[in-house]
């Protein structure tokens, strides 16, 4: 992956496939650290599956949807001296409080740091493909915070789908403006 934003898009797709109603994506940059978290309220994973998701050669039908995505992000984090951690609660064991939370930490100053890239495009692509689920995107750096919550947009839009062309363009402009302020 040439940009971390592509990893974000890829991993968030897993959350959607896990049946998440809300996927929270946060990027926190402070000093030399970049911390990415992707948290969902999807079906979660059993401990057994969780142990094997970072192994690119672990392939069974049940985990086919995971594949290379997590190993690639783990590699991107570890090659900067960072780390990747995943916690998950399987729906079967936690019927009320299930989901998956991923946290990846990067050393931004490392020579092998993958650039964050075009996060706006990743967020708008996620919304374009999955207008019925909700996304919360939050990026903090310096004293700035860029924020988008599709639940707020839906409250205004009612039955107008989030992936209408006009709405997607508005979302892109809305984020662009927050980055440029």
């Amino acid at each position: 992956m040439k940009e971390l934003s592509l990893n974000i898009l890829d991993i968030a797709e897993n959350s959607v496939k896990a049946g998440a109603t809300l996927t929270e994506i946060t990027v926190e940059e402070a000093d030399s650290r970049l911390v990415l978290t992707i948290k969902d309220d999807g079906c979660g994973m059993t401990e057994e599956i969780l142990k094997s998701v970072t192994d690119p050669f672990y392939t069974t039908r049940t985990t086919r949807k995971v594949g290379m995505g997590i190993p690639l992000l783990k590699l991107a984090a570890e090659q900067t001296g960072g780390s990747l951690q995943i916690d998950s609660r399987c729906e079967k064991d936690y019927p009320e409080n299930h989901g998956t939370a991923l946290r990846a930490e990067f050393n931004k100053n490392h020579i092998d740091m993958t650039p964050l890239g075009d996060v706006i495009s990743s967020v708008s692509t996620l919304i374009q493909g999955h207008p019925d689920t909700d996304f919360l995107f939050k990026h903090t750096f310096g004293d700035k915070t860029v924020l988008l919550d599709t639940r707020e947009l839906k409250a205004v839009l009612g039955d107008v789908p989030l992936n209408s062309y006009e709405v997607i363009k508005w979302i892109e402009e809305y984020l662009k403006e927050q980055y440029s302020l």
């Binding site: 992956m1 592509l6 898009l9 890829d10 797709e13 290379m68 692509t125």
Partner: peptide, 12 residues
């Protein structure tokens, strides 16, 4: 838009 597609340039 799986990992393979995204890595190959599906987003643009």
């Amino acid at each position: 838009m799986a990992t393979c597609g995204i890595a190959a340039g599906a987003r643009p």
